[in-house]
């Protein structure tokens, strides 16, 4: 991590110093995400599922009451999970445990932090609690991951204190198309910013609706200042490898594991595929005989009003 540059432009460390004093805190938060790189984070709804995920080699689990495909099916208001469920999962595994809070619901976040959750996902999969504002994530020792569809959204979340970004995709569909779109969009935006002359960056910040300091940072480094994972619709080992080849640093698998016909096998296969994403021979072996992937919904046919990805501001 750079601390300063010879020409005195803003660097990773200095914008963090400007925005928040606890630099160490920031490095410790982002550091955990660094440790998850190359790994798979799996949605689980019971301690037993959490064990299956850990045994398969997941680097972390997301503790939930319902996986996204069930939330989508059931409708209604989706909220933070029961603390008993989250604690049960925390006790069952030694890998870090993540949990979701509603967008803007800072009290759900306070509760998750009190429970000892290792990472909070301020997630569009739950029903938003605020139509305009996200959580001020700097106020927590617990680090945050947030969804994004483009660079503006990613940098706004990082500006609010998120220490990890994931694509939104379209959760609960088992259709990879929107995760691919979002991963590519973020990369395209990064290339655009990187190739701009410095005098265009302020207008770019205005157009992307992103904090200027972070646009400068992306211009300088050619990447997001935090770890970037893929999420939303990953259902097979090939899906995971596709996103890894496109350039994300790890994957979240929601409904894709425990809605498949053989979850333990699918979990194991997706972990292997994420490690060997660049090796077609391996991927062919890994993809054999896995049974049925989760039943999917074509994400492009989901009406706009029912899309989860449009939640978040």
């Amino acid at each position: 991590m750079a601390t300063s540059t010879s020409n005195g432009t803003t660097s990773a460390q200095s914008w963090k110093e400007m925005s928040k004093p606890e630099v160490g805190d920031w490095r410790v938060k982002g550091g955990l995400a660094q440790m998850l790189k190359g790994g798979v984070i799996m949605d689980v709804v019971t301690p037993e599922q959490a064990k299956v995920a850990e045994d398969a080699g997941a680097v972390s689990v997301m503790a939930l009451e319902r996986v996204p495909s069930d939330i989508r099916r059931d409708g209604g208001v989706a909220r933070m999970s029961d603390p008993d469920l989250i604690s049960g999962i925390i006790d069952a595994v030694s890998i870090p445990v993540m949990a979701k809070a509603r967008i803007g619901h800072f009290v759900e976040a306070q509760i998750l932090e009190a429970l000892g959750v290792d990472y909070c996902d301020e997630s569009e999969v739950l029903t938003p609690a605020d139509n305009e504002y996200h959580i001020d994530k700097w106020q927590y020792k617990m680090p945050y991951v947030c969804g994004a569809r483009n660079i503006g959204e990613a940098l706004r979340r990082i500006g609010e204190g998120a220490a990890m970004i994931r694509t939104k995709g379209e959760a609960g569909t088992g259709d990879i198309v929107h995760a691919v779109t979002h991963a590519r969009q973020i990369q395209a935006d990064i290339r655009t910013i990187q190739n701009m002359p410095a005098e265009e960056l302020m207008s770019a910040a205005r157009d992307f609706q992103a904090p200027y300091e972070l646009v400068v940072e992306v211009h300088r480094t050619g990447k997001l200042p935090v770890v970037n994972f893929a999420a939303g619709g990953i259902a097979t080992p090939a899906d995971a490898a596709l996103l890894m080849q496109i350039g994300v640093e790890g994957v979240f698998v929601g409904s894709g594991i425990f809605k498949s016909s053989d979850p333990a096998k699918m979990a194991d296969a997706i972990v292997r595929a994420t490690t060997h994403y660049n090796d077609p021979d391996m991927l062919a072996e890994i993809s054999r005989g896995l049974g049925d992937a989760m039943p999917g919904i074509e994400a492009n046919k989901v009406p706009q009003t029912e899309q989860l990805q449009t939640r978040g501001w």
Binding site: G31, Q34, M35, G57, V59, V271, T275
Partner: peptide, 15 residues
């Protein structure tokens, strides 16, 4: 390096 020890041991064994 850092990571999840459970995951690393599993992958070292598996591969």
């Amino acid at each position: 390096p850092g990571g999840e020890s459970t995951t690393i041991v599993k992958l070292l064994t598996r591969f």
